[in-house]
């Protein structure tokens, strides 16, 4: 009862003060939730961006790791948070795919959030163990179709980037393969390096260094244009799979009901952060580029989320594997 009273009092105070809040925003520490554990690629992106944004906002942004259930636990936490601009979420493509992969989400993906902007779109690469026979993407496609019961396709577990890209790949070439799931990218990459599995499709964040060192074989990137860091590698489009583009895009969200002034302010700050030389340099080393000023806006993120939910739903439903 006491708790309830305290909560009510707090809610009233919030309602009274929220009008005045917008002008002085931000006047205390902001929490940016990353729905994965510390150390992973999304955590890294978040920490880089949060640090650059704090400098512009004049308030510290602390990164809180709320991992679990493919990122949906962290998203659920932010969906329920006060829409005051002090709790934000940085989540990748999983925001869109979890809407289909999870049939029992505790929030409605399209209703529960306001948008700040896109952060980056990490390209994927189609790679294989280094002694895998086919020499280029076209011969890979022929080989895979001829040996579909033998070729093994690794992924890092349901909902992981490599799982999504693998599904899209099989759907694009109309050939089901033997999929071998792992718990996380580390073990999957280990087995690819050791030649225990044949092919995988994974983010440049994980593959660029290996490709450059020649420890794995690369067939194509899944972006629209070739990458600066891997300029010899053709795009999947060029090399023979029409319309095959997959990127692990990241966006910053706020709970639904956050004042527009605040999301606009955050979006401006995000745009600045994405021009920060340190952020640009780190992103480049990971094989990706910051979102453009036009992409780092609430409208662009909203449009991206809507189109991606629509795009992945049939692919996931066709695969028929769900995470709950």
């Amino acid at each position: 009862m006491k708790k309830l009273l305290a909560a009510l009092a707090a809610a009233t105070m919030l309602a009274l003060t929220s009008g005045a809040q917008a002008q002085t925003y931000p006047d205390r520490t902001i929490t940016m939730v990353v729905p994965f554990s510390a150390g992973g690629p999304t955590d890294t992106v978040t920490r880089l961006v949060a640090e650059a944004m704090s400098r512009d906002l004049g308030q510290q942004i602390v990164v809180e790791n709320v991992g679990g259930a493919g990122g949906t636990l962290g998203a659920a936490r932010v969906a329920k948070a006060d829409p005051d601009g002090y709790t934000l979420l940085l989540y990748h493509i999983g925001m869109a795919t979890s809407a289909t992969l999870y049939r029992k989400l505790p929030y409605n993906t399209l209703e529960a959030f306001d948008y700040v902007g896109l952060v980056t779109d990490v390209p994927m690469t189609i790679v294989a163990r280094k002694d895998f026979e086919p020499g280029d993407l076209q011969s890979l496609l022929d080989y895979v179709k001829a040996n579909k019961d033998k070729v093994t396709l690794a992924n890092a577990g349901i909902g992981a980037a490599s799982h999504l890209c693998g599904m899209m790949f099989m759907s694009a070439i109309q050939t089901p393969l033997v999929t071998v799931p792992y718990k996380g990218t580390g073990p999957a990459m280990t087995d690819l390096l050791g030649g225990q599995v044949d092919i995988m499709c994974d983010q440049t964040t994980n593959t660029t260094k290996q490709i450059k060192a020649g420890t794995i074989k690369a067939y194509a990137v899944t972006s629209a244009k070739r990458l600066d860091v891997l300029s010899d590698l053709p795009t999947a489009e060029e090399a023979g799979i029409a319309g095959f583009q997959v990127g692990i895009w990241h966006g910053v969200y706020a709970p639904k009901g956050t004042p527009t002034e605040i999301t606009e302010r955050l979006s401006k700050s995000l745009q600045l952060a994405l021009k920060d030389p340190n952020v640009v340099a780190r992103f480049a080393e990971l094989g990706t580029a910051p979102a453009t000023e036009a992409e780092a806006t609430p409208a662009a993120l909203k449009a991206k989320l809507e189109s991606e939910i629509a795009r992945w739903k049939p692919v996931i439903d066709a695969a028929g594997q769900y995470a709950d």
Binding site: K3, A7, A9, A10, L14, T29, T31, V62, V63, E64
Partner: peptide, 13 residues
Amino acid sequence: LSLPYRPFGPWLG
């Protein structure tokens, strides 16, 4: 260690 928890929370106003 600046763990991201507020010293006093919203229930206390």
